[in-house]
Design a protein around this nucleic acid. Structure first.
Lengths: 278, 278
DNA sequence: CCTGGCAAG
DNA sequence: CTTGGCAGG
C-alpha cells in the first residue's frame, strides 16, 4: 500500500479499552488517518468474530490478533502493520500467560515490534501477585528477545501498556500514589532494571527528558482528563540502536472529552530509517 | 393535594422495568401528568437510596416501597396514592416470597389496592418451579384477601404484572407460544381459577370483551413494539363489586419507540365512586 | 466512570 | 434488546 518510499518508520501504540466500544467512537477514523507504519493495540477485549470486518481486516494492513483465550472479554492485544510480517508470535513462552492476550510480536525486516499489555494489578489482591509473576517472567523474555534480535540484526521495540509509571514525572499525583499499583517502589525498580540492567531505552523519555508526562492514560473517574491528572504508563521500549534513531515522539491526546474513544491516548514515535521490502 | 372533590377513582399499573432507567426516559413526566389516584409499580429494581428524592417521594403522593431484600436489583414493587393509606402491608404471608419484592398492599377507605409482580418463569428451569410455587401460595392469599376485604366492607383490586396471558386474544402470537412460559395451559388454567373459582374479575377484559389485547407488554427483542406483537399480562383483577363500577379502561401505549420508557405500558382503569377522606 | 460479561426478562 | 449487578481497570 506504499505509494512512495518512506525514509522513516512510525510506530504507534494505544490501549483501546474495548475495541467494540472504541470502533463506534472514533478509533476507525483515527486508524484511517494515522501515518503510522505499525500500530500496536492493547485491551482489545474481543475476538475477531465479535468485530466488524473492516475493523478485523482494515484495508491496507496486515493484522495479528491475540485475544485472550482464557478470559472472554478481557485483555487482548493486536499488531497492525502496512508491511507483511516475516514472522508472527503470540505469547512469550509462559505457561501461565501465553493464552491471556497480553503479548504478541511481529518480525519486520530489521525490526521486531511487540504489543504488551502488562497486568494492571491491585495492591493486596491476587491480581498484584499475578502482575509480579508476569513481571518476573517477562524480564527474562526481554533479555532473550534482545539477544535473539541482535543475532538476527534486528532492532526491537516493545510497545504497550506497561501499567507502571517509572518516575515522579510520569504521573501527576505521584505523592498520593506511592502505595498504589502502578507506582509501587518494587514496580518502579523493575522498570529500572528493564532500562539499566537489560539495556532497553524509554524512547519518549529520551526525547523529552525534562517534562512532566507526557501522560498517556487518564482515569474515567472524576475529571482526571480535564485536569490532566494522568499517568505515563504506555511506552515504546526500544533497543538502544533503535532509540538512537527516534526523531519525534508525541502523545495524541484528544482535545476534549467527546473526541476520546479510550481512556488511553496513542503514543506515537517516528524512527529514522525505512522498513524496506525484502 | 386534591383541590376538587372527585367522583371517580382512577388506578393505574405499570411494570417500569428498572425505575432508574425509566426515570431518565419519561417516567417522571408520565407520573407528573397522570390523573390517577393510585399508581402501582412493578420491577422497580432499586432501593429507595438508589433513586433521586423526587422519584422516591414525589410531591403529592404517599408511597409504599417494597424492594427485593433477597436479590439486589431484581423485582421490587411500589404503591403510590394521593390519599394516605390506612394500612400498608408488604408480602402475603409467604416465607419464600415476602422478601422478594413481588407484592404489597395498601388499604384506602373502602378499597384495598395491591401491586403484584408474579415471577416470569422459564420452561424447563427452576424459575418455572418458582413461578408455580408462587401461584399456589398466591391463590390462597387471593381467597383470604377477598374474605377479609368483604368483612371490612372493602373492595379489592390486585394490579400488576401477572406474567400470564389468559386467552388467545391476550397475545398476538398465541399459537407459537403455547409451550412458552406465560401462555402455558396450566398457567392459563390457574388464571381461570382466579376468575371463576375465587371470583375476581379481569376488569379490562370485562370492559373490552371482543378485542385482541389491548396488549400491555412488547418484548424489546426484534420489532415487537412496532408490529404490535404484544401480550396482555398486566391486569387489574378486581372484586365483582368494584369491577361493576369500572367506567373506562385503557392501555397507555406510547405512540413510538423514543417515547417508551419501559417494555410495558400503563394499564389505567377509572372506577365510579370517590375515595373519600375518612 | 467506563468496559464487556452475565442472569433475568 | 434492555435492565442492573459484577469484576476489572
Amino acid at each position: 500500500m506504499r505509494s512512495t518510499t518512506r525514509t522513516t518508520t512510525t510506530v504507534t501504540t494505544v490501549n483501546v479499552n474495548g475495541l467494540r466500544a472504541a470502533s463506534g467512537k472514533g478509533y476507525v477514523e483515527w486508524l484511517d488517518a494515522t501515518e503510522a507504519d505499525v500500530v500496536c493495540l492493547q485491551e482489545v477485549r474481543a475476538e475477531q468474530k465479535q468485530l466488524a470486518a473492516h475493523v478485523v481486516e482494515p484495508a491496507g494492513w496486515h493484522v495479528l490478533w491475540a485475544p485472550s483465550t482464557t478470559a472472554k472479554g478481557r485483555a487482548g492485544v493486536a499488531l497492525l502493520s502496512r508491511h507483511e510480517p516475516q514472522a508472527r508470535r503470540i505469547g512469550f513462552g509462559s505457561d501461565e500467560f501465553d493464552g491471556s492476550g497480553r503479548y504478541a510480536e511481529i518480525d519486520l525486516p530489521g525490526l521486531t515490534v511487540a504489543s504488551l499489555y502488562l497486568p494492571s494489578g491491585e495492591v493486596g489482591t491476587e491480581r498484584q501477585d499475578e502482575k509480579e509473576r508476569f513481571m518476573g517472567e517477562f524480564l527474562d523474555h526481554l533479555k532473550a528477545l534482545r539477544e535473539r534480535a541482535a543475532s538476527q540484526g534486528r532492532e526491537v521495540v516493545v510497545c504497550g501498556d506497561w501499567n507502571i509509571a517509572h518516575q515522579e514525572a510520569d504521573l501527576k499525583n505521584w505523592k498520593a500514589n506511592q502505595k498504589n499499583a502502578g507506582f509501587l517502589p518494587e514496580e518502579r525498580a523493575w522498570l529500572s532494571r528493564v532500562f539499566d540492567e537489560v539495556g532497553y531505552v524509554d524512547t519518549v523519555r529520551k526525547l523529552h527528558p525534562d517534562v512532566a508526562g507526557p501522560y498517556s492514560w487518564w482515569s474515567y473517574r472524576g475529571r482526571a482528563f480535564d485536569s490532566d491528572a494522568g499517568w505515563r504508563i504506555d511506552y515504546q521500549v526500544a533497543t538502544p540502536g533503535l532509540a538512537d534513531r527516534a526523531l519525534t515522539a508525541r502523545v495524541e491526546r484528544a482535545a476534549s472529552h467527546p473526541e476520546r474513544w479510550s481512556d488511553h491516548a496513542p503514543v506515537t514515535v517516528t524512527y529514522d530509517g525505512a522498513i524496506l521490502p525484502e
